[in-house]
Design a protein around this nucleic acid. Structure first.
Lengths: 220, 220
DNA sequence: GCAATGTCGTGAAATTTTCCCGGCGCCGGC
DNA sequence: GCCGGCGCCGGGAAAATTTCACGACATTGC
């Protein structure tokens, strides 16, 4: 290995996908992949033992997710350089990742050049965000998704909670001792205030903002 | 090209991931990757022009999803050999993919050997299912609980997927090239078949059955 | 061939959603 | 003490959607 070689740790739970990272990165002179991990815990362990110059990490992994892995590694080494490379084209995830200590966020839909460029930038000490996420962030700044807890009155929030949990408009009306009409009006008003067009979007927003938790749905 | 070379078309919207497929598959003598597509429509077009012996296809892609792409390709060529290679470790998707005409279903968490083995099996005319999905299928058979994939026709399942992911009825109609009215009818029929009364319940059921993953709810 | 099933669409009724409206009560500022 | 604003409650009517009944067509299986 030459003196200037930068060492890299790859983290992704899909081995065939890691093969892709490796293939792309090792075509680049000066980069060397020295280790691979399939989940966050293993990544943390390998970071401590291998001390790579850079970590390229996926977010959705079994066990502790990528965000938590980023946090732990940064807790152990304040100077750790971590580049998040994920399928999630979502500004929210990017914000969370950067806050957790990631130095870059690139989506998997990006062409290989973008990944390589981001790797180089992060190694050089810069922050690297892929163009699509930059765009998303700009959009969210402009039309900014309103936090439900922020824009809704207590009553509206309560109705929203019940809509997500209970069944029908009538049941909610009975629970709150108001007319079904009022519930319907509030339902409409809530969607308006949150800027969503359908109940499906409403559920998605609620999950995104942690108002509904996946465990509450009885799922896997 | 040698007489025994099998030609392969790769379909995945993540270029770096395709690099992984390619790297793994081309290490295998007798396999040759002749084309790559980034979405279902392109896959269909390339299949017709390149006539590969095998298609290795992801499921979650922009535009028409992988399931629909499988259906279209099989409609055009009844003998098409398509191996689905996806991150979804969910029996429901597997059932739908096989019904749509896929000859194999392998998850991305599988080691490269499993993918290679499945490719060989499908080329040899066998049906290839990765062990983890076999297990899932066995479990779902035991629990006897009727899943969405069970009671819905392929088309209905596809519309449901789009309803959960996309936005409006009109957009889905445009994507599938059918009338908005048809989508609305299917929407209603789906809720009827699954025994839910609202879109909110529909989302909850989808989450419970792993058709939607909580972490994936970010997308715009 | 014939029945069963899946797909696609129309039309009309039933229901819901949405918008606009007013009334009530509470609170803070003047 | 009197407003003005806001949360809260619901009526009415128009608009949109959902649902139901029905027919057509292609494919599949017997």
């Amino acid at each position: 290995m030459s003196a200037g070689d930068a060492t890299i740790l790859l983290v992704d739970d899909h081995s065939v996908v890691r093969e892709g990272y490796r293939s792309v990165l090792e075509k680049q002179p000066g980069l060397r992949v020295i280790a691979e991990a399939a989940d966050g815990t293993e990544a943390y362990r390998l970071y401590k033992s291998e001390a790579p110059d850079l970590v390229v990490m996926d977010l959705s992994m079994p066990g502790i997710g990528g965000i938590e892995a980023v946090r732990r590694i940064r807790q152990w080494d304040k100077g750790a350089k971590i580049l998040v490379f994920t399928m999630h084209e979502n500004a929210g995830f990017a914000v969370q990742a950067i806050r957790a200590g990631a130095r870059g966020y690139v989506t998997k839909t990006s062409p290989p050049e973008t990944l390589v460029r981001a790797v180089m930038d992060v190694l050089a000490g810069k922050i690297a965000i892929s163009p699509d996420i930059d765009h998303e962030l700009a959009l969210s700044r402009i039309s900014g998704e309103s936090s439900a807890a922020d824009v809704l009155t207590p009553r509206e929030f309560e109705v929203m909670r019940l809509l997500l949990a209970e069944n029908t408009t009538e049941e909610i009306a009975a629970t709150l001792h108001v007319s079904p009409k009022t519930v319907a009006n509030l339902h409409s008003l809530i969607k308006d205030k949150l800027g969503v067009n359908s109940d499906i979007e409403l559920v998605r927003l609620a999950l995104r903002q942690g108002i509904l938790t996946p465990v509450d749905l009885g799922g896997t």
